[in-house]
């Protein structure tokens, strides 16, 4: 709905044609460096990792200091312990670790004399039935392709989704998520917003079921990510499942894939 408001605002400004935008320099405090945990388990064999880094000042370049030499373990609810080793600076993984659906996972990281823990739940997948597309000519500007995802939401439970599109091999940067409040138990078709595709593009979708904690985290992350035009009334840090003096999150993805080629 915030999008709607920004959209209306854009129309007014366009009509009045008076506004102007410029880059300014604002003096910002520099917060103490924090440990950042970016950890994922999933049912996809290549997406199980823990990335450890440090936060930086707002005006520095986007290359963040890696945290090396940490001890990282992930334990499933059957008590199987996976020890993750550093395969690149700050990147920890274990080829034997592939997430099992409907399983709880515990993360423990010991780095720089500091221990942090986190717990996440890898839910069951919801199957993506198909993808379709149509040319949308209503709206502002030129007609454009709209891609629809078709699936049946499970009536009996609360479901949370994340959609990660890849167009011609290039990953989309937007965080698009959805809860099932408006589609509970419905055989739905939902448009992929924030995705622009052209004729003959190949679109691949990771259709991901996530748990509520991951959903809430990503929702706030979407508002404060600097790739977005973040302008919340009172922005704040997302509520994290991490226990200890660190920021970031431990997420779990139940992924199904789909792909389609746009043929005009």
């Amino acid at each position: 709905m915030k999008a709607l408001q920004i959209f209306l605002f854009a129309i007014i400004l366009l009509t009045l044609n008076t506004s102007c935008e410029k880059v300014i320099l604002i003096e910002l405090n520099e917060a103490d460096q924090k440990m950042v945990v970016d950890a994922i388990v999933s049912n996809d064999s290549v997406q199980n990792y823990v990335i450890l880094s440090k936060s930086g000042g707002f005006y520095q370049d986007n290359d963040f200091e890696a945290i090396s030499g940490a001890s990282v373990t992930i334990t499933d609810d059957a008590g199987v312990i996976y020890s993750l080793s550093e395969s690149a600076p700050g990147y920890y993984s274990n080829p034997n670790l592939v997430g099992k659906l409907k399983t709880n996972y515990d993360l423990e990281v010991v780095a720089n004399d500091q221990t942090i823990t986190a717990n996440t739940y890898l839910p069951d997948t919801t199957h993506l039935d198909s993808l379709s597309y149509f040319l949308n000519s209503g709206g502002f500007g030129d007609p454009e392709w709209f891609v629809l995802m078709h699936w049946s939401d499970k009536q009996s439970e609360e479901n949370f989704y994340r959609f990660k599109p890849t167009i011609n091999g290039e990953k989309g940067k937007q965080i698009s998520i959805l809860d099932d409040i408006l589609i509970n138990g419905v055989e739905t078709q939902y448009p992929l917003f924030d995705v622009t595709v052209e004729d003959f593009d190949t679109l691949m979708i990771e259709f991901i079921e996530i748990d509520q904690g991951t959903y809430e985290y990503l929702k706030v992350l979407g508002e404060i990510a600097s790739g977005e035009n973040a302008a919340s009334a009172a922005p704040g840090n997302p509520v994290s499942n991490i226990v200890g003096d660190a920021i970031g999150f431990f997420g779990a993805y139940a992924i199904t894939n789909g792909s389609i080629v746009i043929e005009p």
Partner: peptide, 15 residues
């Protein structure tokens, strides 16, 4: 924001 960090492939502001 008083800082920033990298997470899930994006750069996020830190408050």
């Amino acid at each position: 924001p008083s800082g920033k960090y990298q997470i899930d492939g994006v750069v996020a502001n830190y408050y």
